[in-house]
Design a protein around this nucleic acid. Structure first.
Lengths: 205, 205, 205, 205
DNA sequence: GATGAATGAGGATTCATTCAT
DNA sequence: AATGAATGAATCCTCATTCAT
C-alpha cells in the first residue's frame, strides 16, 4: 500500500508546519481578543486551532493558564527583541526612543495581541498582581535602568525619580495602545513614536 | 423615650440616611473591587446593601447596568469637582497641576473605587469602547483644552499635539493609580502629584 | 373650585360602572388568553383592570384562584343560560340542537374566553381533575339526561350508552371550538351548529 | 468468561439496551405526566434518564424542545402504525373502526403518554398552533380521506362535510382519552372502541 | 498523543405575594 | 379599601474539565 497520511494528521492547510501548542496559543489570542476572556469558549479555541477540546488540556492547565502563558511568552519574546535592538546603543536618549518605538511597533502590528494585552489581561486584581509582579516589573526595571543610566551620564535631569519616570513612560505607551485599539479610525500606531519621545524628553514647557 | 426609628426603617447603622439606591451602588463598588465583576455575585451585593436580591432589579437593569452606572455617576461627579477646582484658575501650568492632583487625590482616597475604575471597568472591548466614547472622551477633551490654552498663552510648546499630550497625561495618571492599587506597600498616592507634574511639565531632559 | 374626581377614582373611561372584581376577572381572561396562564403576570392583570397589584389579593386568593373563579363563574352562567333556553322545550332532538347551538354561540362570541376555556384551563392534571369533577360533570350530566330522556321517549336508540353519548357530544363541541380558535381564517362558529347536530343525530351511515 | 458489559455502560437495569436519547425522551414523558410541563424540573428528567443535567442539552435544545420532540416522534410513530393497520383494508366502515380502535388502544396502553398528549401539550396557544398545523392536521386529513372514500363508495351519507366529520371523530376520541385519564376508576379504554364506532356510524336516531 | 461525549456545579433573574402605610 | 415597594424562593442552562477509548 502506498504511503498515506494518517487520518489524525489531516489538518487545515493553514496549520501546516505549526506545532499544535503554537496553534492553540494563537487561536486563544484571537478568541480572547474577539470575545473577551470570560466569554471565550474553550471549544472555540479548540476549533480555531483545529484540535479537539481535550487536546488543549494536554498542553495547558486550562483556560486561565492559556491567558497567563500568552502573556508570559509574548512578553518574554518582546523583551528579548527589545534587548537585541538596544544592544550596542549607548546614548540614553536613543535607548528611550528605541524602547518607545519597539513598544508601539510590536503591538501596532498585531491587533488581536494588543487587545489581549490591553484588555483581557486586566480583568481581575489577582491576575494583574500576578503579572505585574514579574513581567511588568521586568519591563519597568529595564526602563528604570535606562533612566538611571541617562542620569549618571548627566543627560537626564537628576531630580527625577527614575521609577516614577519608568511608570510614566509605560503609562503613556499603554494609553497610546489602548487608545489605538478603541479608535474607530485605523491609523499607524508606530507613527506616534516620534512625538511621544519628544514629549517624554522635553515635557510641556 | 427618645425619638426612635420606625420598625421598617430599622437598618444596620452604617446604612442610616442613605437611600437604597446609593447603598446598592456602594455595595456594588465594594463587591466588584473585592471579587471582580465576573465573580461578583448579585446576592453578595444585595447582602452588602442590606436589601433583598430582587430589590436590586427595582433600581437597576442588572449586574452590567450596575457597573455602567457606577462608572457614569462617579465620573460625572469627578468631572464636576474638577471643574469647581479649576474655576477661576487661569494659568495653564496651574490648571495642569490641579488636574493631576485631583485625579490622584480622588482615587487615592477610595481604594475600592480605584480598583473598580482601573480593573473592573476594563473587561471587554465592548465595555471599554462604550465608556471611552463618552466619559473618557470628556476627560480627555478637558485635558486637551488646558493644553491648547497653554499653547495659546505661549506657556506650552507649540509643536506638541494637544490630543497626544492629553492622552499622555491621562496614561501617566492611570498608570500611577494602577501601580498604587497593585503595590504591596501602602503609600500616599496624592503625594505623587508634585513629581508627576514636574515630569509632565519639564520632561526628561 | 369646580367639582373634581377624587384622585383614587381616576380610572380609564372604559372601566366606569364595572365593579373592581369584575374588571379584574375580565382582565385576567384577556391576559390569560394573550399570554397563557404560566406566562401571565399578575402585574399585567392589575394594569389591565386599572388597579394596584395588591388589590387583586383583596378579591382573590391568587393567580390560580383567578383561573378557577373564571371557570366557575363563566360555567355557572353558561349553564344558567342554557337552562333558560331549554325551559319549555320537550322534544329531545330539539334539546340536543339547542345545547349544541348554545355551546357554539357562547364561545363563538367571546374569543378570549374561548381561549381560556380551551387552552388555559388545561395545563395540569390536577387542575383538570378539579374542574372535571364539578363543572364539567354537571354539564355532562345535563347532556346525559337529555339523551336518557330521548331514549325514554323512544326517539333515541336504546342501545347507546347515555354517558358515552354525552361525552361524545361534548368532545365534538370541544373540538369545534378548539379548531375555531386555532384556525387562521375567521369564521362563524355558531354556523356549525346545524351540521354538527345532523351528524350527532344521524351518524355517518 | 461470558460476554459482559463494558464498565462505562453499567447502567440501571431498566435502561439496558436503550439509547441515551430514548431514555431522556421517556423520562421526560414520565416527568411531564407526573408534574406538568411547567413544574417539571430538568434535573428530574435527567435523574429519571440516568444522565447528567447537561447531557440533555447534547441531545435536545431545552425543555420545550423535549416536549415538541415527544409529540412529533410519538405522533409520527402513531401514524405509521395506523397506516400499517389500514393497509389492505378497503371498506370505509372498517377503516373507521380500525382508526378508532388504534387511537384508543395506543393511548389506553400508555397512561403517561396519554397524559402528556391530552394535557401537557396544550398549555399555550402558540404551542397548540404549532402542533395542530402539522401533526394534528395530518391526522385529520387521514380521517377526512376515509370519510370521502366512504362517500365516494356510497356507504357514507353525501350531505356530510368530510372535514367536519373528521374533526368530530377526533373530538370524540380526544374526549374519551381525556375522560379516561381523569377518571378515578381504572377501566379499559380500548373497550370503548366498539360503542364509539357504533355512535359515529349510526348517530343518535 | 488525541479525541469528544459526558459531567455537574453554579448564579442571575423573575414574579407571585405580602404588608406598612 | 387600596396601594406598590419590597421580598426571596426557585430553576434552566452553560461550559470548563475529565477520562474511557
Amino acid at each position: 500500500m502506498a504511503a498515506r497520511r494518517s487520518p489524525t494528521t489531516t489538518e487545515p492547510a493553514s496549520f501546516s508546519g505549526t506545532s499544535k501548542r503554537e496553534r492553540i496559543l494563537r487561536a486563544a489570542v484571537e478568541v480572547f481578543a474577539r470575545s473577551g476572556y470570560f466569554n471565550a469558549k474553550v471549544t472555540d479555541i479548540a476549533k480555531g486551532a483545529g484540535v479537539a477540546d481535550g487536546t488543549i488540556y494536554l498542553y495547558f492547565d486550562g483556560k486561565e493558564d492559556l491567558l497567563v502563558t500568552i502573556f508570559r511568552e509574548y512578553t518574554r519574546n518582546y523583551l528579548h527583541e527589545l534587548e537585541k535592538r538596544l544592544a550596542g546603543v549607548n546614548r540614553a536618549e536613543e535607548r528611550i526612543r528605541i524602547t518607545i518605538t519597539h513598544h508601539l511597533e510590536t503591538l501596532g502590528s498585531d491587533r488581536p495581541l494588543a487587545v489581549v494585552s490591553q484588555v483581557e489581561l486586566r480583568h481581575s486584581l489577582k491576575f494583574m498582581s500576578l503579572l505585574s509582579q514579574q513581567e511588568v516589573a521586568d519591563y519597568l526595571n529595564m526602563l528604570r535602568k535606562v533612566v538611571e543610566h541617562g542620569q549618571a551620564e548627566g543627560v537626564f535631569r537628576r531630580n527625577l525619580h527614575p521609577q516614577l519616570v519608568a511608570k510614566s513612560v509605560f503609562g503613556i505607551l499603554d494609553e497610546m495602545v489602548t487608545s489605538w485599539i478603541l479608535s474607530e479610525k485605523e491609523y499607524d500606531l508606530a507613527a506616534q513614536a516620534e512625538p511621544v519621545a519628544d514629549f517624554v524628553l522635553n515635557g510641556l514647557l
